Computed example of a mutant assay.
Amino acid sequence: MAQEINLKSEISATQTGLRLDQALAELFPDYSRTRIKEWIVSGAVYVDGVKVDKPREKVLESQQVEIEATLPEEVHAEAQAIDLDIVYEDDHILVINKQAGLVVHPGAGNTDGTLMNALLHHCPEIELVPRAGIVHRLDKDTTGLMVVAKTVEAQTHLVAALQAREITREYEAICIGTMTAGGTVDEPIGRHATKRTHMAVIHNGRPSVTHYRVAEKFRAHTRLRLRLETGRTHQIRVHMAHIGHVLVGDPVYGGRPRPPKAASAEFTEVLRNFKRQALHAVRLELVHPVDMEIMSFQAPVPADMVELTKALRKDTEEHPMEYI
């Protein structure tokens, strides 16, 4: 189980003028500088009761510092030969197109066969980087682009860029219901009050922003392009469910098959056989952590979503009077 920690201390006279991450590393030597930086940029550190998310912030004598964070359970991962679709690789970063069914981190119920196991096999030296260089996650059955850091320096830069919303992540999704226009969902997300594996929009959750636009309308479904400002667990799935447009196939948030009126048996079967959330990370843009060049990557929509889209188009063509 993850461990909730609460650390408190006071800045000493000799620490005046130090960066916040340096001072905290001295005050709490049981935790690595990398972990402390992560806590700072994630908003888990308070100075005199005020949240501070910049590691470079200078500290002063007598300031009260507090860390309220979750320390994840350490899981030892073994290297495993698992095929990866590598889109780009150099000495510092790795960009992959993750397949459906691949869990990112080992954990309860998934002790091996994960992306982390695959990374340790493909690039053994990545064992020296926290979380095997993983910067952000995709859910098990979400496909598409992920960036992985091959060095601690690259990871630190990419985590900071992600927190500063300097990495562009665009997704393609298919939701239930016909949307008339795009928009933005700006609603906080946190752990569901009673369902431990679910997330939900809650008033005291973490700030979460999802932009979406209509890419294609069908008779009773919509194909979307979405862009994340934040990266909360299940963010797109939760936000779309919140506005009444759950993703097709989503096993957690209610994307069960809902064939429209007079749907053909063939189309109904396609919907019933789509067993995962129809969500794909289609575009990733970032600044290289060392070269400082803007890099942009695209990943083609996977075959199952392509076939679903074809079926939706056919259903719409067969019922033109009901198409809005």
Rank of each mutant, 00 (worst) to 15 (best):
Y171S: 01
A181K: 15
Q99S: 14
K58E: 10
Y88A: 10
L119W: 09
C175Y: 07
M179G: 05
H157P: 01
L138I: 10
G107K: 06
E73T: 11
Q63T: 06
G49H: 09
E153H: 11
I93P: 01
C123Y: 15
R169K: 15
M179W: 04
V75R: 14
V104K: 09
Y46W: 12
T178Q: 14
L94P: 08
N117F: 00
L102F: 12
N97W: 00
L138D: 02
V87P: 11
E68P: 06
V59S: 06
Y88N: 04
G101M: 08
G133V: 06
A132F: 02
D90Q: 05
C123P: 00
D91P: 08
V45Y: 09
T151I: 06
R191L: 11
G133R: 03
H122G: 10
D91W: 02
V152L: 12
D91G: 09
T70K: 12
S62K: 15
D53Y: 03
D112P: 08
E57F: 14
H121V: 04
E73C: 00
I189S: 08
A181Q: 15
L94T: 10
A100V: 08
L115P: 03
R131W: 06
Q99K: 14
A154D: 05
V129T: 01
R165P: 07
D83P: 02
M116S: 02
Q155S: 05
M116A: 12
M116G: 04
K58P: 02
Y88L: 05
H92I: 09
G133H: 03
T151M: 00
M146P: 01
T114L: 02
L128F: 10
E66T: 12
T184R: 14
L102I: 13
V95L: 07
I189H: 04
R56G: 13
R131I: 05
L128K: 14
L120N: 00
T156Q: 13
A160N: 12
E57T: 14
V65K: 04
E166L: 13
T114H: 08
H122M: 04
L60S: 14
G144F: 07
D85R: 13
E73R: 12
D112C: 12
